[in-house]
């Protein structure tokens, strides 16, 4: 019960600071512009995919870190009240992740609806994109909380957040590429698949690829990836890994919040 009450107050606070509105408008304008210039729903989705995979983790982790630092007073105030730390943590998380997710879903979904971009097979692809976006929001908000809880210095926390983002967006794939070249003599399909489970952005990207780039993926190695992620087991593993990426940082964050001194 208290979780919802706390979330409601945090929501009001978040809405008043307007960044979440800007965030939603960013997606709204971008999607709308892509429709006006680009045309088909499919093409808009493809362009959005890059933005979703880069911007959502960035905004979620940077704003999430700032948000938790900014909620310090609120947290301290509520901890003197008969409120469980767990409820407070959940409330704080909801207060961030919910408006971000809603802003993203509406900002992206409304233009699709308005431009009639849901025709054909794009409806399910859009759902997948929205689902991936929301998943990444949750994951990177959790990571942000974990980071903000583990360092008191705000500038440092922000630096770590950006570092984590750079790692998952760029460095990780550089290492994968390096591994592919260094270990060229070995069959790398399965190790590479396993590696992709270790990066939530890659996981989201591959799930979206299967929806958008099916022709390319049907060739050569692509068929291996497709067979894996296309099978019930593979999808289960992918969704499980995505869920683990939400749950594990969240649980670690909760534990850290539970033990923290204010």
């Amino acid at each position: 019960m208290n979780t919802l009450k706390i979330a409601r107050y945090q929501l009001r606070d978040v809405m008043r600071s307007r960044w979440v509105l800007l965030y939603g408008i960013f997606f709204l304008l971008m999607t709308d512009a892509l429709f006006r210039f680009g045309g088909s729903g499919e093409r808009v989705l493809l362009s959005l995919m890059n933005v979703v995979l880069i911007a959502i983790p960035l905004v979620a982790i940077v704003l999430g870190t700032m948000y938790l630092y900014g909620s310090r007073e609120f947290t301290e105030l509520l901890l003197t009240q008969p409120v469980r730390r767990r409820s407070l943590f959940l409330g704080l998380f909801t207060g961030l992740a919910l408006p971000m997710s809603v802003a993203f879903v509406l900002g992206t979904g409304l233009p699709f609806w308005a431009h009639g971009g849901l025709a054909g097979g794009t409806g399910s692809s859009l759902l997948l994109l929205l689902g991936t976006g929301v998943g990444l929001t949750l994951i990177f908000a959790s990571l942000a909380f974990l980071i903000a809880l583990s360092t008191e210095d705000r500038i440092r926390g922000l630096g770590i957040s950006l570092g984590v983002w750079v790692f998952f967006t760029v460095v990780f794939n550089g290492l994968v590429m390096l591994a592919i070249y260094m270990l060229a003599d070995y069959p790398m399909e399965k190790p590479v698949l396993a590696l992709s489970l270790l990066n939530p952005i890659d996981l989201g990207r591959i799930l979206l690829l299967l929806s958008f780039d099916i022709s390319a993926l049907m060739g050569f190695t692509g068929a291996v990836f497709r067979r894996f992620f296309g099978s019930g087991l593979g999808q289960g593993v992918a969704i499980g890994a995505m869920a683990a990426w939400v749950v594990i940082p969240f649980a670690l964050g909760l534990r850290s919040f539970h033990r923290k001194n204010f």
């Binding site: 995919m49 760029v170 794939n173 990207r205």
Partner: peptide
């Protein structure tokens, strides 16, 4: 390196 296809549309490749 056909396996590298898994990096399709990644920021790194961009």
């Amino acid at each position: 390196k056909p396996v590298a296809l898994i990096l399709l549309r990644s920021f790194f490749v961009d």
